[in-house]
């Protein structure tokens, strides 16, 4: 298991490595950069999901969740590196606004594409919204022809 002493040891080692490379980083800086790296990793996962998942709605899931947490991670990392300076506080405000606005945009996009008529993936189990509001489930029925091209 990872505990706080081993984390501190890792951070100390990282500080020494950075010092050899000619960079002057404190333990807090290292932790901040690790948080930023994790955030970037989640952003990357979100991007991969955007390519791999089957339809608009699943892609929105991936884009919204991973990218929100990833970008929030970057903002928190900036706060840790910068401390409570004007930059750090602005970063945290950005994070709060991201949390408030990202789900709203995902909601608007998904509702808009349903109403526009973007069909859901053929493996979709149920579409209560289409059944109640749009006069029938909006699930695509046959295989796409141009998938090879």
């Amino acid at each position: 298991m990872i505990d706080s002493t081993s984390l501190t040891a890792i951070a100390d080692t990282a500080t020494q490595v950075a010092a050899i490379a000619g960079m002057n980083l404190s333990t807090l800086d290292i932790i901040g950069y690790i948080v930023i790296a994790v955030g970037v990793l989640f952003d990357l996962l979100g991007a991969i999901g955007l390519v791999r998942l089957p339809d608009v709605y699943n892609r929105l899931q991936s884009a919204t969740k991973s990218v929100t947490l990833g970008t929030l991670g970057i903002m928190i990392g900036i706060l840790i590196v910068e401390g409570f300076t004007s930059i750090g506080i602005k970063a945290i405000i950005c994070g709060v606004f991201l949390l408030l606005t990202a789900p709203v945009s995902a909601h608007a996009l998904s509702r808009g594409s349903l109403r526009f008529g973007a069909k859901m993936w053929k493996g979709t189990v149920i579409d209560s919204y289409g059944k109640d509001k749009l006069g029938g489930p909006q699930i695509e029925t046959k295989e796409k022809k141009d998938e090879v091209a």
Partner: peptide, 25 residues
Amino acid sequence: MLVANLDVAFRVLHPRCPVNPGIVK
């Protein structure tokens, strides 16, 4: 939110993308 992201990450990285989507009430 963290659990959610690990869940989505697992689905994205899984070779077969195990999704079972739908709109529920």
